[in-house]
Amino acid sequence: MSIQHFRVALIPFFAAFCLPVFAHPETLVKVKDAEDQLGARVGYIELDLNSGKILESFRPEERFPMMSTFKVLLCGAVLSRVDAGQEQLGRRIHYSQNDLVEYSPVTEKHLTDGMTVRELCSAAITMSDNTAANLLLTTIGGPKELTAFLHNMGDHVTRLDRWEPELNEAIPNDERDTTMPAAMATTLRKLLTGELLTLASRQQLIDWMEADKVAGPLLRSALPAGWFIADKSGAGERGSRGIIAALGPDGKPSRIVVIYTTGSQATMDERNRQIAEIGASLIKHW
């Protein structure tokens, strides 16, 4: 067993022997301040990774656009098919120029040779490549099948209805392509620590998230040296922004954090800054 596999296998073990965790309302004060600064709703939840206990939450059962955070769930569904012998990570998928959609920095470079399922998941999570996500959605049967996968996990809230990039439209009061912070946090925890996926697939999923290259201005910008984070960000229309993450000190994750916002007129930089400040408060009061 590799060191990384050992780390993920012992996530519940280490967490069980940690000192009790206590909620700190100071972080919620910052979440509410972010709402004021952005002029928009902000949803927040913080779960203990081992027990699933909610440590703090704000608007945990209000719907927010998922945006690209759905790509972690998508690759979880792909990995479940791999575990069941219905898919192979090494299978190569070929596609054409007509398949390319807006923001496809990886797939646009491989029109000639195609990409493997493993490479597509890596591109979808680490670079948020939209064509990679659409190609992977095709392998599982489309958005409705991802929703069905989530329902089978016990998540009857999260739903995907459309493809990239239309799913980022974020129309107010439109339930399409949305989740709730509580539902997303619980589902992410199941994917990373539950028995739904094999140990190898859980490790692969967290490795992809740990290698995320496009979430630097968010929670990662607030992390002290030595902290662990595996995350996936999302951005959408109407001032929408979000991030889902597993993080913790001492090089291992111990909490799940989900943050979503929508309806702001603020710039992307300002949305990023507010999420980073929430992260800084979380870490300060850990």
Rank of each mutant, 00 (worst) to 15 (best):
R7W: 08
F64R: 01
F14R: 01
Y260N: 01
T198G: 11
R255G: 02
G279Y: 03
G154M: 06
G76I: 05
D250M: 12
P105M: 06
W227I: 02
A9H: 12
H24I: 10
Y95N: 01
G52P: 04
A215W: 02
A230L: 05
T27H: 05
H24Y: 09
N134I: 04
F149K: 07
V257L: 09
A23E: 05
P143W: 02
L160I: 13
F70R: 02
N173M: 15
A15Q: 08
T138G: 13
M209Q: 02
K30L: 12
Q88N: 13
L197Q: 05
F13D: 01
K232H: 00
Q265G: 15
L223G: 03
G239T: 02
L10I: 11
N152Y: 15
A211N: 14
N134S: 04
G39Y: 10
S2G: 07
R220Q: 04
G154L: 05
D129I: 00
A225H: 14
P181R: 00
A84Q: 13
P217C: 07
M184H: 02
Y260E: 00
G90D: 14
R91Y: 06
R271L: 12
L160T: 10
R81H: 10
Y95S: 02
D129T: 00
M1V: 04
G90V: 12
F14I: 13
V106W: 07
I229N: 02
G90P: 08
F58V: 08
S51G: 09
W208N: 03
R7I: 09
E119I: 01
K30W: 05
N168L: 05
I125S: 03
K53P: 03
T107S: 11
E62G: 07
S96I: 10
R118D: 12
T139H: 09
L136F: 00
L136Y: 00
E237I: 10
G43T: 01
C75D: 02
V21I: 07
L247C: 07
C75N: 02
I244Q: 01
S221W: 09
I259W: 03
A266Q: 12
E145L: 09
E61I: 10
G154C: 06
L196G: 12
V21K: 06
P249F: 05
L55F: 10
S80R: 11
V257T: 06
T107P: 01
D212C: 04
G114Q: 04
S57W: 11
D161N: 08
I278V: 09
L282D: 01
A182W: 13
S96F: 11
D177V: 01
F6R: 09
Q88E: 13
S254E: 13
N173H: 12
P20F: 03
L188C: 09
K252I: 12
Q97R: 15
S2H: 15
G248A: 03
A211F: 09
A124N: 04
P65N: 04
A215S: 09
L47I: 15
V21W: 05
G52V: 04
H151K: 15
P181S: 05
T139N: 10
C121D: 00
A246H: 04
L136K: 00
V78E: 03
N272W: 01
S96C: 10
V258I: 10
L223T: 13
A183T: 12
E277N: 11
S240C: 08
E175V: 15
S122A: 12
T267L: 10
I140F: 06
A211D: 15
G236F: 02
R159W: 06
L191H: 05
A235Q: 04
Q88I: 11
